[in-house]
Design a protein around this nucleic acid. Structure first.
Lengths: 340, 340
DNA sequence: TTGAAAGCGGTACCAG
DNA sequence: CTGGTACCGCTTTCAA
């Protein structure tokens, strides 16, 4: 169906290799005579030539495509990440094949397998982090990749992550300084790197201010709005419900707000709320949310830069780990505790 | 670097074609002896064979990849669309290469060119709609594609679109029945299909109730939050500002709300607002928004189904145009007009 | 400056 | 049931 080099060659009356030389333009105007060059260019345009990247890729051993594996592109955090990665794609040399895992380990494994089959030149992965063999395999085979937001402690792969413990510490400290003593932690998926860091920060802030950790204050294990809803419900029904909440992830905040609203609790007067959240709309909520916001653009930029460097020399493990800090933004959802 | 069929063949001591037969598993257990079959499978696993889809693709003339072109994956409307498309990808036969146009016609043209170079098996496109030659070209060459949300009146390509005029009509009628007479229309990009339809609906609803259209009530031409902000500002500074607003697109509503908020106008008491919007968070806004919501899942599903059908027989133009209706959801941002 | 030929990694058809 | 071969479309090295 599609026009090939050979067809152009036949039409112009030259050998396919000559056409190739002209069309790839690698050797500029040197290797092929000017007149012939023009004739070939004309013929290609006239015949609507569409170069076959599959064939080029096979020959050159590169697909000019980068695979991106994220939990869910519907989450603005990951959508933003993808866009910022794209911005670092100088000269539009690469395109991006995007996969969603929904935090399902088996999906991730399948997707990465597929991305390898399709010979992605590099991989950008927010890993599910339940298994790591498939990541280790990439590592062992010098397959260029960068982990984003989550990394494996035991593996010095390229990674761009957040100062999760520190970020959470700051948020909890803010609440403590407002006089809160009983502070709830609405946890996301326990197995994931960010959440573990944030829980550490939560605990160490309490410890620093000599507040005992009540295990009943730590609820939840999931990253959907529904999980947040259920977790908040659990806190609400407790006899001495926390006067302040740290919500550990983006999307679950929606469920938390819903539960609080349903229970007739007002923010911040009945309960103060701080959330790890990155939503354009945070300022428009009935109570604008105090949040720890992530430098998404920078995360994407760093990840892509490291990946490009790694792809340039796959045999040398960069082992580059970049750690970034969140930005604590005080809005209206936190308030002094009563009686303090 | 990577293991090839031939290497497996050498190791097992058979011909590559035999290995191919086993590994593709197309002919099931027939064509190759059970013992040999097992030995090949073992060897492949042991050697960590990763089939080369570039080579397969070249040979089979298909990439097993579908190109998706959307304005902006950060817009939850398009992110949702992508996820719903994915859901229709039965057996995970395809992966998706996603491109953002930012409503830039040249970017779209470049992206589609690249998608053709990479030999996408099919294309799903939300077109920018300033030029159509490149779309016509796809059409002329029987390249399978489906347009989503926007179509060209003059081209009977496959498309899944909304009943924009009718949807807008309903919204405006709702406002009129609440007693509003001066109703503003915050328009998105004038050139795009949805917006044109929605403007038609706006105008015909006013006409049906014998209300003259004041051109000063129609503002804006762009799809960003900033555009919405500017457009709303323009309305606000008018001497007799509309008592109700129809906002024609998803993201601009954010700017509109900001402008109203800044001007100290309360919704719905100072001004009623209806928006075309699809955001998980609409219910959480300080005033939950009355919206026309789109059946995103169905749009994605239909688009993908039509595309799959079209890919099955590229030479026959399906010319299938599916039109869906929005869902009018009354929340709290609309109120009776004063003095009515 | 241009042509010829080999090969990237697979698949499929035709023999045997 | 297995082997041999040609070819998918393009790039590149070597000759001429």
């Amino acid at each position: 169906m599609a026009v090939t080099l050979k067809q152009i060659a036949d039409k112009v009356g030259v050998h396919p290799s000559t056409v190739s030389r002209v069309l790839t333009g690698r050797h500029e105007n040197f290797s092929v005579g000017e007149a012939l060059r023009a004739r070939i260019l004309d013929a290609a345009k006239e015949m609507n030539y569409v170069p076959n990247e599959l064939a080029r890729g096979l020959r050159l051993q590169k697909s000019h495509t980068i695979g991106i594996v994220v939990p869910d592109i519907l989450n603005p955090l990951y959508a933003g990440l993808v866009r910022s990665i794209e911005k670092e794609n100088i000269n539009e040399r690469y395109s991006f094949l995007i996969c969603n895992t929904d935090e399902d380990q088996e999906k991730e494994i399948k997707h990465i397998e597929m991305l390898r089959n399709k010979r992605m030149d590099g991989l950008l992965i927010v890993p599910v982090q339940k298994k790591m063999d498939h990541i280790k395999a990439l590592w062992a085979e010098n397959y260029p990749f960068v982990l984003i937001l989550r990394r494996f402690e035991k593996l010095t792969t390229n990674a761009v992550v957040m100062e999760n413990a520190q970020d959470a510490y700051k948020a909890v400290e803010h609440l403590i300084k407002l006089g809160h003593r009983r502070i709830g932690f609405v946890r996301g998926r326990r197995t994931s790197y960010e959440i573990q860091g944030r829980e550490r920060g939560y605990r160490s802030a309490l410890a620093a201010y000599h507040i005992a950790v009540d295990p009943r204050c730590i609820v939840g294990d999931g990253c959907s709005a529904d999980d947040g809803y259920a977790a908040a419900k659990e806190l609400i029904k407790q006899s001495n419900m926390p006067s302040a909440l740290l919500v550990s992830e983006n999307v679950i905040i929606v469920g938390v707000l819903e539960a609080l609203f349903e229970a007739g609790l007002s923010i911040p007067y009945d309960v103060s709320v701080v959330s790890f959240a990155d939503m354009t709309f945070s300022p428009f909520f009935s109570t604008p949310l105090t949040t720890i916001s992530m430098p998404i653009d920078q995360i994407g930029k760093e990840s892509m830069q490291i990946l490009l460097k790694q792809m340039a020399s796959p045999e040398i493990h960069l082992g580059r780990i970049k750690t970034l800090s969140g930005n604590f933004i005080i809005r209206k959802s936190t308030h002094k505790a009563f009686g303090s």
